[in-house]
């Protein structure tokens, strides 16, 4: 069965969803991602959906789940590149994905993650309880 490739870039993971996903593929992405976050102790996850033509409630729920699960594993998720038509439809559908951080494109998304990781590190360093 097909799987969506997950790329590792330093302390971040990168996923580009390009295919018209069926539900099983979405479920396995969720499993693979959480496994890899745990394995590499990743601090950030970037999911690019700029080529995705629709996001229905199932995919929307999967994205929200990934963000929540990553959060539990101490990683921040950023969703990038959602198309206007997809965003309008998702809002009309009743999903606002309010727990997920978003960015216009991958570049902005990476900036956002770097910034977030840096802020977290600054917050953690003074008392030296981390690391």
């Amino acid at each position: 069965m097909d799987r969506i490739p997950i790329l590792k870039m330093g302390d971040c993971l990168l996923v580009t969803i390009q295919v018209d996903m069926h539900d099983q593929l979405a479920v396995s992405l969720q499993e693979d991602l959480t496994a890899q976050i745990a394995k590499y102790a990743s601090r950030g996850v970037l999911i690019d959906i700029s080529t995705l033509e629709i996001v229905d409630s199932f995919i929307g729920r999967m994205l929200a789940n990934i963000a929540a699960m990553s959060r539990v594993l101490d990683a921040q998720t950023v969703l990038t590149g959602m198309q206007p038509a997809v965003a309008i439809t998702l809002v009309e559908l009743g999903m606002s994905l309010s727990g997920i951080k978003t960015a216009l494109n991958v570049e902005r998304g990476m900036e956002l993650l770097r910034q977030y990781i840096q802020e977290e590190n600054e917050y953690r360093e003074p008392d030296g309880s981390e690391e």
């Binding site: 959602m82 206007p84 965003a87 998702l90 809002v91 009309e92 994905l97 978003t102 216009l104």
Partner: peptide, 12 residues
Amino acid sequence: IKTITAARLMGA
């Protein structure tokens, strides 16, 4: 509100 929510989903 919908427009603003959609813009947020896109990252703006």
